[in-house]
Amino acid sequence: MFRPDNDGELWRGLGELSMIGLTLVFAISIGVLVGWWIGKKLGSSTAGIIIGFFVGSIAGFREMFRTVKRYNR
């Protein structure tokens, strides 16, 4: 569990932890947008969205678990 020693560390920690949710949102959004764009160029935006969605989700979850692990140490 994250235990801050002082106020500065507390706010920095809270800020970084609140980034976890944003990381997932941005990773999925960027994955879908890039996937859609590449898919459109190649002729199938739907396939691009699907691939981008899964790549974004994997990236987002990976980053989320890394952040949580870092704070658990």
Partner: peptide
């Protein structure tokens, strides 16, 4: 619209 599609995916 790509942003609408992102909204749908979210």
């Amino acid at each position: 619209s790509p942003f609408f599609l992102v909204g749908v995916v979210l």
